[in-house]
């Protein structure tokens, strides 16, 4: 055994465990706003991810234990689950998770080898294939309570909806609504303010700050991503305030916060150099806004991240930092 002979106490498992912990405030807020249905979604995604991970490790001839205990599959599952509409049907959850783990992760070589963010691949596949199901959201309590029901679905009811919509059609319609962004797109955004999405965004932000405090994520990616969103949105709003939402609305959405701190910061598929991380974040933020504004899908985060993933080798290559004792300006080979 060659040097060094001592190690810091960090491990992949520890990093992934902290990511999961940092997601808890967001999950809590989610439950509070949308009811406990998300817990069913999370569980289903987790079980699917672990099963897929085990099967793929086995198929590829890897030992299951060290790789299963690294918790990375669960992180992918949770990120995907949190991106899906609440009360998404079971087959949607399973399909998305399978794509994320089997195709985006293992067919690219497993942990550390995937060039695309697995959760975002799962999401992208779903939204392209099942646009209708992917845009049905159960509204937050305040919205749904405008109708007669007034309360959340219980855990059992949520499970029933997810696994086959046993509820009468009318009830289901009452509790579902278009995604907040669709609402915005159709000009109904007055209705959407102050109904709780900010709380969810704030909870993700809180978890993200925890990760930053623990130095599990760097400041560059989240800050650059948020700046990318804010600058692009501000630019659009400046030219046509009537048509484009205020920058803060775009900034303070759950999907943006989740992406800024948990998705864009995925180390494996992101840029590695300090300047590269800034470029990656800015680019992802800009593309998110562009796709939101002119694209055919309700949210641009997934596609923005995937597009930036493609650019990572280039970004890294052109943003190599100066080394110790290196020339101030280094000519690129």
């Amino acid at each position: 055994m060659p040097s060094p002979f001592i190690l810091d106490r960090s491990s992949v498992t520890q990093i992934m465990a902290w990511v999961l912990v940092a997601l808890l405030p967001g999950i809590g807020a989610y439950v509070w706003l949308f009811g406990p249905g998300i817990l069913v979604t999370l569980t289903l995604a987790t079980v699917t991810a672990l099963a897929a991970e085990t099967a793929m490790l086995k198929a590829r001839g890897y030992p299951a234990k060290p790789f299963l205990t690294d918790l990375s599959a669960i992180v992918t599952a949770w990120l995907l689950a949190l991106s899906l509409p609440s009360l998404a049907p079971w087959w949607l959850i399973i399909t998305g998770t399978l794509f994320a783990i089997v195709v985006a992760k293992h067919l690219y070589g497993g942990l550390g080898q995937n060039i695309f963010n697995p959760a975002m691949i799962g999401y992208a596949v779903l939204i392209v294939s099942f646009p209708v199901q992917m845009t049905q959201w159960a509204g937050p309590l305040e919205l749904t309570s405008l109708d007669s029901s007034g309360v959340h679905l219980t855990l059992a009811q949520s499970a029933a909806v997810i696994f086959g919509s046993d509820l009468p059609k009318a009830t289901l319609d009452a509790i579902t609504m278009a995604t907040p962004l669709d609402v915005l797109r159709t000009g109904l955004h007055q209705q959407m303010t102050g109904v709780g999405f900010e709380w969810l965004a704030a909870a993700f932000l809180l978890g993200g700050l925890l990760l930053w405090a623990l130095r599990i994520i760097s400041w560059q990616v989240p800050l650059a991503f948020l700046a990318g969103i804010w600058l692009t949105a501000g630019f659009l709003h400046f030219f046509d305030a009537g048509r484009f939402g205020a920058p803060w609305f775009h900034l303070f959405t759950p999907s943006v916060m989740l992406c800024a701190f948990f998705i864009a910061t995925d180390p494996v598929s992101g840029a590695t150099t300090p300047r590269g991380k800034l470029v990656f974040g800015l680019g992802a933020g800009f593309l998110t806004m562009v796709i939101r504004t002119w694209g055919g899908f309700p949210d641009g985060v997934a596609f923005a991240i995937l597009l930036m993933n493609v650019c990572v080798p280039l970004i890294d290559q052109y943003t190599q930092p100066r080394i110790y004792g290196g020339a101030r300006k280094e000519p690129r080979a």
Partner: peptide, 9 residues
Amino acid sequence: LPRALPCIR
């Protein structure tokens, strides 16, 4: 030293 895992960048 524990078993090495792939680089997660």
